[in-house]
Each structure stands twice: as C-alpha cells, then as structure tokens.
C-alpha cells in the first residue's frame, strides 16, 4: 500500500465514521425528548444530565420493591435503556429508604436525596376540568384523600357554586412546592366504573383522567404506609371501585 492509498483509505474511514457520528448526534437529540407522562425515578438529575449519567444498568429497576420501573426499549419514546415509570399504571410508592437511588452506581439518581418527600419527579396537573366532578359541584375529594402528602400537595379550594347559586365547589388545587403526584393520577379510574345513572354520562367517557403527572418536578411518600384512617369517602363508593382504582386502603 502506498502513501496515497493509505491516506485515501484513512479518509474514507474517517468520513464514514464522521457520518455515523452526525447520525448519532441527531438521533440523540430526538431521543432526549420524553413524553410528559414518562417519569424518571426519584432523585433523577435534570434530563440532559441524566442521559449523560445513566449507564443503563437497570439496578434501580431491580431494586424497586414495587416493580414499577421499566427500561426504555428501542423504539420507545424514552432513551434506550434508561429507567422510567408511568404514574398512571404504576405510581412510585415513595419508599422511605429510596432503594432505587441507593442502587444507582453513577449518581444519575442523586444520592444526595435522603428524604423522599424532597424528590421532584413530576407535578400533578388537573388537565380535564370538564370531567372532574368537583367542578360540577359534587364532593369527590378522592385525589385529596389519596394524596400521600395529604393537605399539602393538593388542597380543596372552596368556591361559590354559581350553577346552583347556593352550594359550594371544592376545587382540587395542586401545590407544586409539595406535590409528588403519586396516587392522585389513579383516581380517574374511579369514574370509569361509577354507575352511569348517578352521574352525567360524560363521566363514563372519562376513561382518561382529569389529573396527570408531568415529568420534571415531583416528590413522593409511601401511600401504603399511611397512618391516617382510611378516608370514609372511599368506602362509600360501590364495591369493586376501590380495587379497580388501586387506592390503598
């Protein structure tokens, strides 16, 4: 091989690899945008830093006692191999010892996080006021009651009910400084199963929630470890609802 061939070959290889690099760079840009309902585990660094820190080992997934974490697959809308959960199907249970963070070998889940209530995984948002029965003057308050940080993350804001003219509306209001958005997102499942005669049929259609969780900032506590007595409102609903909506009683 003469010098010209050698340089030619080298240039060819370098160009090829360079093109691969461009492709990878562009792909990584696309892959770093995540759907709003995909939530990172507690203590996760801001997304850009997280993608640099997470080595996709899945140890957090393995150490999650409630098996709510998944690793992104190829083709998912979350970066390949990185952990996430979807609060609506399996919310973070806010373990006090935060085993997923302890398992993380690279600080992608920040080991500085000692108090699970300090974590900011996402934020609950009331997205569907039309279907939230509180806005229609009915006292639901389930989201308020199932909230692990009861009274602080969601408050019920009493307003005048202009429809009847003499009653009150108890409007759920999420407070971002305390919200962990853990269990409230399961509440809408209630409505799907409620007897249609009791409520407007629109609520039957409300298979998807009034409340969702947006990734980014969020906080947690183990609902299962409540010391509160079960709110009576939960048990007054028809049998079967309680298990359907996974409210821990």
């Amino acid at each position: 091989m003469n010098r010209r061939q050698f340089l030619g070959n080298m240039l060819k290889t370098a160009c090829g690899v360079g093109l691969v690099g461009l492709g990878l760079g562009a792909y990584s840009k696309r892959a770093s945008s995540m759907p709003a309902n995909y939530i990172r585990p507690p203590g996760a660094l801001p997304e850009e830093d997280f993608l640099g820190a997470c080595i996709r080992c899945g140890l957090c997934v393995r150490d999650c006692p409630y098996d709510i974490l998944f690793l992104g697959e190829v083709g998912d809308e979350v970066a390949t191999g990185t952990p996430y959960f979807i609060a609506r199907s399996g919310p973070c249970e806010m373990c006090e010892d935060i085993p997923c963070v302890v398992a993380c070998p690279t600080n992608a889940l920040d080991h500085e996080l000692k108090d699970i209530e300090e974590s900011r995984m996402g934020l609950a948002v009331v997205i569907d006021q039309e279907n939230c029965i509180a806005f229609h003057g009915l006292r639901c308050e389930v989201c308020f009651n199932v909230c692990p940080i009861r009274g602080r993350a969601i408050s019920l804001d009493m307003q005048h009910n202009t429809r009847s003219g003499k009653h009150a509306l108890f409007i759920p209001v999420v407070h971002s400084e305390a919200c962990t958005a853990v269990d409230c997102v399961n509440v809408p499942a209630f409505w799907k199963r409620l007897p249609s005669r009791s409520f407007r049929c629109i609520w039957q259609k409300a298979s998807w929630a009034s409340i969702t969780v947006w990734a980014g900032r969020r906080k947690t506590k183990r609902a299962r470890h409540w010391s509160h007595p079960t709110p009576s409102i939960v048990t007054t609903y028809p049998k079967g609802c309680v298990t359907t909506c996974k409210v821990k009683v």
Partner: peptide, 19 residues
C-alpha cells in the same frame, strides 16, 4: 474515538448507548 467525543460535544449524554 467518536463514541468518546460525542458525550463531550452532544448534550444527549452517553450517545453510543442509545444504539
């Protein structure tokens, strides 16, 4: 070399691990 440069220049982090 490419896979080691990408984490330095691209904000997407460990780019190679995506693929």
């Amino acid at each position: 070399v490419l896979t080691l440069i990408l984490p330095l220049v691209v904000t997407g982090g460990i780019v190679w691990e995506l693929v």
